[in-house]
């Protein structure tokens, strides 16, 4: 075959370019270790997502050291959870699946990006070095309101990060002289036990734990929340000396707060309230 010399040179340069591209990409995979999304996440029947161990309670959990897992369920047109918070200097493995159509899970302006295909679980491991705030968006058309599907990613300084959650449950109202209870549930998704102090404050005074709380008092209670578990604390409140009216209360655990207002009524007025 008759090929012009210039064309032979061009052919050689083209081959060098192509082989060079393949070499740099291969280096990217084996050197810095940029792995592709693959089939490691496995498959899932979208109808069983609520029963799935990982996706029934989606969100961030601690695996150990600086490693975390984040489970996210995508569906038209929202992510659950919509906001993800992780610490800086962490390695987070995302598991994302879809309840309905194909979505993506994309951290805008970064290389954190995966398709989310129903029936499949996308597994993606990301290293977060610096604190920052990022938008999460869906970049695959998923129906009429596709453009409203978004989320948020917060990378916070390590010392500001925990996986403690607090929820409180208390009656809004009590009759003067009766005893009532403020229940506080503390959950911990770290891979180690959380030892901390729970504090209830009503008004501006402090009283030890296990004592009945009276007016303007704060109660402290030591608590150990097991790894990936939760504890429920009961604060008994005696309203005898409270006086009628509204009393604000705050439960503080490990820097997280839950608060409410207890309205103390007269015995007779209370009757009206119940009616």
């Amino acid at each position: 075959m008759n090929i012009h010399t210039y064309e032979k040179t061009w052919l050689a340069v083209a081959m060098v370019l192509i082989v060079g591209f393949i070499a740099t990409i291969t280096y990217g995979a084996v050197g810095p270790g940029i792995a592709m999304i693959d089939d490691d996440g496995g498959t899932i029947d979208p109808d069983t997502i609520n029963d799935d161990e990982r996706f029934s309670d989606p969100g961030v959990t601690h695996v150990g050291g600086n490693e975390y897992e984040a489970a996210v369920v995508a569906q038209a047109w929202a992510y659950t959870p919509s906001e993800i918070t992780v610490p800086a200097n962490s390695t987070v493995t995302f598991y994302v699946t879809s309840r309905d159509v194909t979505h993506s899970y994309t951290v805008a302006g970064t290389n954190v990006n995966t398709m989310v295909v129903p029936g499949q679980v996308s597994e993606m491991t990301v290293e977060f070095d610096e604190p920052g705030e990022y938008g999460i968006l869906c970049n695959e058309y998923c129906g009429a309101y596709h453009h409203t599907m978004e989320g948020k990613l917060n990378v916070v300084p390590e010392d500001e990060f925990d996986l403690t959650e607090l929820s409180t449950e208390a009656p809004d109202e009590a009759q003067l002289g009766n005893q009532t209870t403020i229940n506080t549930t503390v959950s911990n998704d770290m891979n180690y036990d959380l030892e901390t102090t729970a504090t209830l404050e009503i008004g501006n005074q402090t009283v030890e734990q296990d004592q009945t709380v009276e007016q303007d008092q704060t109660v402290e209670q030591d608590v150990t929340v097991p790894a990936h578990g939760s504890e429920t604390l009961e604060f008994a409140v005696d309203t005898t000396d409270f006086g009628t009216g509204d009393h604000d209360w705050t439960v503080t655990v490990d820097g997280h707060e839950g608060s409410g207002t207890l309205t103390v009524t007269n015995a007779t007025e209370g009757g009206d309230g119940d009616a």
Binding site: E133, G135, L137, N139, Y141, H146, H147, T148, G151
Partner: peptide, 17 residues
Amino acid sequence: FGIPRRTAEPQYEGFSF
């Protein structure tokens, strides 16, 4: 810088590009 394709309103509530 992250503006997606196939999107009617690439203007989001919680963040900007």
